[in-house]
Design a protein around this nucleic acid. Structure first.
Length: 347
DNA sequence: AATGCGGGGAC
DNA sequence: GTCCCAGCATT
């Protein structure tokens, strides 16, 4: 048996029973694939179930509004995925008559669908000959074939895509793609791969040269920015003054609170003098309570957040601010740290 | 080619 | 703490 046959054999004996593996409906597969971008199966699964339940067809999805989609997406991260899904659902409704495309060339044109996702949907839904290359595939190929080119360099990506295409099972592209990804996720893991039970270890470069820890190679950069965010909560217990965020920053189009961002961590006293609360909210505001600073970690930013509760209404208002009834809070998509804070504050 | 975009699990 | 997850869009 060759590389692909071994992977497929392993897959058929060891695969997880996942809901999107019981359908060839391109819409359902698209739901699962976008939800799983940069997201583990265990984290994405409950979201998939909620989306599939609430929007059984692409036309149901297209009829939603953005707040509703983002609220359903809340907590999953990378929220542009949700916003792009809505654009794509409407595009499919309006320009494809509600029939989700199944060819790579059509799929790649849609918002939020890149090379990986287009190949996944085309192969799973229509058995099109397209090799998927995701994080799992990079790892399996790098180790098995001993490919040391960085997976996040332009040249490396080409080599891995070409290798994946070369070794794609031309008779069974769909199950081959599923198999290599599942193999990477379950057996050929980033840390402590299960080489002892690996069916292809004898032909594996990394096993032979004890190089699983060194492969794949990845160029690392990532500078982490520190941000200091002071949220001001205006509430009478019945309604809350919220801020609808714009685009071009984290949590685009989601709802948070009136905010003052500072370039360093300020004490509460410093914060309340110049040029913060009174200038932003009016001179009549009075502090009620202030939380400790909590740290919220994103991939590329460390946020230091303080919540300050003020007397009910600010004197000045901003166009992005809106009073939200507490009973309607559940309709609004909130960043994780704000959701946690309000959950504690209101209950 | 480089950067921004979440949140969480595994170690 | 570090790494990375069924990546994509933008510049």
């Amino acid at each position: 048996m060759d590389f692909s046959d071994e992977l497929i054999k392993w897959y058929l004996e060891n695969k997880r029973d996942l809901p999107w593996r019981h359908t060839t409906d391109a819409y359902i597969i698209w739901l699962s694939e976008v939800i799983l971008q940069q997201t583990r199966v265990g984290q994405g699964l409950p979201y998939f179930n909620r989306f599939a339940e609430k929007y059984p067809t692409v036309n149901d999805f297209a009829a939603a509004d953005e707040d509703e989609v983002l609220r359903l997406w809340q907590g999953l991260g990378y929220y542009s995925r949700g916003r792009n899904m809505l654009k794509t659902a409407r595009m499919v409704r309006d320009e494809y008559g509600g029939t989700f495309p199944t060819t790579y060339d059509e799929l790649i044109k849609l918002k939020g669908i890149g090379e990986y996702t287009a190949a996944a949907i085309a192969s799973f839904a229509a058995n099109e000959l397209r090799a998927v290359v995701d994080g799992n595939v990079y790892r399996v190929l790098a180790r098995y074939f001993g490919i040391a080119e960085p997976i996040n360099s332009t040249g490396g990506k080409k080599i891995f895509q070409a290798t994946a295409t070369d070794f794609l099972n031309k008779k069974k592209p769909a199950v081959h793609n599923q198999a290599i990804m599942e193999f990477g996720a379950m057996l050929c893991k980033p840390k402590n791969p299960a080489c002892g039970i690996c069916p292809i270890r004898l032909a594996c470069y990394a096993f032979k040269y004890n190089a699983t820890a060194a492969l794949p190679v990845k160029l690392k950069k990532l500078s982490i920015k520190q941000r200091f965010i002071n949220y001001f909560l205006f509430t009478n217990g019945d309604e809350i003054l919220m801020n609808k965020r714009g685009e071009g920053d984290i949590w685009a189009n989601m709802y948070d609170l009136p905010m003052v961002e500072t370039s360093e961590l300020l004490s509460l006293d410093e914060l309340l003098v110049i040029p913060t609360s009174t200038e932003n909210f009016g001179h009549d505001v009075k502090i009620s309570t202030a939380s400790e600073v909590t740290k919220h970690i994103l991939t590329h930013q460390h946020l230091y957040i303080r919540f300050i509760t003020l007397t009910y209404k600010p004197v000045k208002m901003s166009p992005n601010w809106v009073f939200v009834k507490v009973e309607n809070l559940q309709k609004h998509p909130l960043p994780k740290p704000l959701f946690i804070f309000l959950d504690n504050f209101l209950n």
